[in-house]
Design a protein around this nucleic acid. Structure first.
Length: 608
DNA sequence: GCTTTTCCCGGC
DNA sequence: AAACGCCGGGAAAAGC
């Protein structure tokens, strides 16, 4: 037993590498704790291929470091304690350890309190990095931790023996977790983040399971899409050459001397090819180019689309397939964004093209299995109706009406009806007015002004201005809600979602700058809808995971307001009902004024 | 030569 | 491109 003076605390730690009295005592001690600090040292960061070398567990006073290879088949007593749902596991970056415990030992490390997630929650809007354990140990406890030692494990293989410093620092990795949690909880309470904190912590195991499950991708279908994109790109390029080669010449391979991927080269080139209509062009972005009606521009936009398909969604994407599972395991971050939405990376599964061929390439991977895709319909607008209690909107949702058409008829003062509503010969009425109303409904929630609406809906500026003012006039509850909400945000220097208190700090903005002030105002208006939707989806994921336990079904993906579950075909109907009920149930935890609806499908592939 | 930033575009 | 919110990624350009 090594005694170490640590910041006025007497802390003892012990290395356990064999069966016997010490091991028994350690397990017995841990089993008496209400919360256990837990950490693992692993051979790398991949839970599917890397191995756990050490498990550290303990509290402020006492820590144990278990040698996994030495204990091997005798880990069960320890794992039983760690899997005990009555004991909270305090972990820094718990998703990482959760996945290793799940994959290597078959246990679910839950419930967890994650000191990294807690810190991110507290600092949303203030910073995006600096959440490592040594950062916060220094910040809250003034403890300097030596993190270089962690790298030394990466060179190791399973079964190697450890140095004294390696073991000591592994023990220290769990010694501060209880104190950190206490300190963070003081601030969580101070800022009213108790509720959202519980939601975030409970979501962690669901995300861990989801990442481990992964998504199967049909390589043949995917590559077929790439081949088509390559052919279309060539066609677009030939068309581009017709316009640009006469001016810029060709290289020895017959390609134009212009790099069509280079905005810097393109901007002046477009001006000389297109002439007058492109005179004031200041960017080659799609939004700017769309204003110009010219065959060269059409060819360029087609080229760009195909280039994107090939570079981002082409064969390189398949390199993410894990050789062991044959599936793609994206990294989902539940708290990187300022609004609480998930981000997804390596690869990003949240921006796969909507085009059918791309979604259809994601399959269940087995003829006996299905993918269930369910999404909330019109969720952000429902949240706005719920929060503002706007009676006209609420009535539309209760009646299952068409919000865009009905709002359109209110704003324009004329009826709007879809052709064919009253029988096959019904020509409809003013149906073209639905689109601008839809743009306005969506845009208003993040501060769209008349200028943008005019562009978006192809309206004269005066008409757009009229529409915007008609919106505020006709839906006064929404105006009242936003006005009060924005005023409070500006006063508090933070924005919150009323559902769970989720917070985004707004300090650090120059509010004397009108542009920046407008941006902050828009962020305030948009936040409750985005954050509310994110929270509801997280609750849905947590509920679904619980109800799928022990069944042949797993969550495999989520895209903001959408959840994808893989399951055996024989129980697909049953699982579908669980997913739908949990999604609606999750929304009902927060929304009391507006009914919620979901749309879903059971298919062999990811579908919309 | 390597890394960071900018521009652009895919999603909700 | 923007007086429209939130992301991640690829290629080019810029910076070191």
């Amino acid at each position: 037993m090594s005694d170490v003076k640590q910041h006025k605390l007497m802390s003892t730690w012990k290395f356990i590498d064999k069966l016997g009295e010490d091991y028994d005592k350690a397990v017995r001690f841990l089993s008496t704790l209400l919360s256990i600090g837990v950490d693992t040292e692993t051979t790398g960061s991949e839970p599917i291929t890397d191995k756990v070398l050490l498990i550290s567990a303990g509290n402020t006073d006492t820590q144990f470091v278990f040698d996994v290879a030495k204990l091997e088949s005798n880990l069960e007593p320890l794992l039983n304690v760690l899997a005990n749902p009555q004991i909270i596991k305090i972990v820094h970056n718990a998703k990482f350890d959760y996945k290793f415990f799940r994959r290597s030992f078959g246990i679910a490390l839950e419930p967890v309190f994650d000191t990294m997630i807690a810190e991110m929650l507290l600092l949303k809007g203030r910073k995006l990095q600096g959440f490592a354990l040594d950062d916060i140990a220094d910040k809250y406890l003034g403890v300097k931790m030596d993190k270089d030692i962690r790298k030394s494990f990466l060179k190791m293989v399973y079964g190697d023996s450890f140095t004294e410093p390696q073991l000591y620092y592994s023990a220290m990795d769990v010694a501060y977790l209880h104190k950190l949690r206490e300190e963070q909880m003081r601030f969580i309470r101070k800022h009213g983040l108790e509720k959202v904190s519980v939601i975030e912590m409970a979501t962690i195991p669901a995300i861990g399971d989801m990442e481990l499950a992964g998504m199967f991708i049909d390589k043949v279908k995917w590559l077929k899409a790439e081949e088509n994109a390559k052919a279309a790109k060539l066609t677009a390029m030939e068309k581009l050459n017709e316009f640009f080669s006469p001016i810029y010449g060709k290289d020895m391979f017959g390609n134009c001397n212009i790099n069509y991927n280079s905005p810097k080269q393109l901007l002046p080139a477009i001006k000389s090819v297109v002439g007058k209509p492109a005179e004031g062009l200041s960017s080659t972005a799609e939004a700017a180019l769309k204003e110009i009606d010219h065959p060269a521009i059409k060819a360029l936009l087609a080229y760009r689309e195909k280039e994107k398909r090939i570079t981002t969604y082409g064969s390189a994407f398949l390199e993410y397939i894990n050789p062991v599972t044959g599936r793609i395991h994206s990294d989902f971050s539940q708290l990187y964004t300022d609004t609480g939405r998930f981000s997804s990376a390596n690869p990003n599964l949240q921006n796969i093209p909507r085009e059918k061929v791309y979604r259809e390439a994601f399959t269940s991977g087995d003829p006996d299995y299905r993918l269930i895709t369910v999404d909330y319909s019109g969720m952000e607008l429902r949240i706005l109706a719920d929060l503002s209690k706007e009676p006209k909107w609420i009535q539309v949702f209760i009646d299952k009406g068409d919000l865009h058409a009905i709002n359109g008829s209110i704003l324009y003062g004329v009826p709007i009806r879809k052709p064919g509503t009253n029988g096959p010969t019904d020509p409809g009425e003013n149906y073209h007015l639905r689109q601008p109303a839809k743009s306005l409904n969506f845009g208003i929630g993040y501060g769209m002004g008349p200028k943008k609406l005019a562009r978006e809906a192809n309206l004269p500026f005066d008409k757009a201005r009229e529409l915007v003012s008609a919106f505020w006039r006709n839906f006064p509850s929404i105006k009242k809600f936003f006005d009060a909400h924005v005023a409070k945000c500006m006063n508090d220097k933070c924005v919150r979602c009323p559902y769970d208190g989720r917070l985004r700090w707004l300090d650090g903005f120059d509010l004397d700058n009108p542009k920046e002030q407008a941006r902050v105002r828009n962020m305030c208006m948009n936040f409750p809808m985005q954050a509310g939707n994110a929270t509801i989806t997280k609750r849905a994921l947590t509920r679904i995971r619980e109800h799928l336990m022990g069944k042949d079904a797993q969550i495999v993906g989520t895209v903001h307001d959408e959840i994808i579950v893989r399951t055996h075909k024989d129980i697909a109907d049953e699982i579908y009902k669980i997913v739908v009920d949990d999604m609606i149930g999750a929304a009902k935890e927060f929304m009391f004024n507006v009914p919620v609806e979901v749309e879903g499908k059971i298919d062999t592939c990811w579908s919309k």
